[in-house]
Computed example of a mutant assay.
Amino acid sequence: MKLTPRTPGTHWRDRVGPSFVSDADTLRRLRAALSRWRLQERPVTAGDPAPPIDVATISRTVDEALDQRTALPEREWVDATVFLLRGHLELLVREYRGTTDTSAVRQLHRDAYALLELGRRFTADTPPLHLYELMLALATTAHAFLALHQKGRA
């Protein structure tokens, strides 16, 4: 009997590759099942530490938003960056555990909440310059919160 060498996986040619679900109903059921499975595997308790904040990603997004530009960037990019910055700012505001004794920190919190509320009201009909100004304000506020977060961890 003579063995013929095979390339791994050549006998799988007739099989169809993995296909992914695209309808919303099935995706919802899969997400619910996955979350139930995660909770069964290791339940979350009140004493669990919060996951660390990804400082590098937030810094990169803020730096990209605050880059000097001679022209207004494309609307799609500004929309995506505003979405990311809102998420970063919500995370930073929620996770900031420093003191709010100084008036500057309290004002920063008020500014963050006002910008997050303002960002919820913007639609596709919002003029591009207004959205760009919101992006700059979100980036500046996120940068200030990131500095507070890093100062508190040092």
Rank of each mutant, 00 (worst) to 15 (best):
R110N: 08
A65K: 02
R38G: 06
L39H: 12
W12D: 12
L129H: 05
L108I: 06
R6F: 12
V105S: 00
L39A: 15
H130D: 13
V93M: 03
A139R: 07
Q68L: 12
T100S: 07
F83D: 14
A114L: 05
P18Y: 11
V44A: 13
A65G: 03
G17H: 05
L116F: 08
L27K: 13
H143N: 07
K2C: 02
V93F: 02
D48T: 11
Q68G: 06
L115P: 00
K2G: 11
E41Y: 09
V105Y: 04
L115N: 02
L89G: 02
I53K: 09
T7V: 15
W37P: 01
G87I: 12
E133K: 07
I58E: 06
S19F: 11
L30I: 13
R36Q: 13
P128K: 08
L131F: 03
V82I: 01
L148H: 00
P49R: 14
T102K: 05
A104N: 12
M135Q: 15
L84Q: 14
V44S: 11
S35N: 03
L30M: 10
L134T: 09
R15F: 08
V82T: 00
E133N: 07
P18M: 12
L131H: 05
H149C: 07
T100N: 04
R28L: 12
H143I: 04
Q40L: 14
R13V: 07
L34A: 15
V78M: 04
L148R: 09
R60E: 13
Y113V: 03
D101N: 09
T4V: 12
T4G: 00
E76R: 10
T70D: 09
L39R: 15
T102W: 04
D111S: 10
T81E: 12
R29P: 01
G119Y: 11
I53S: 09
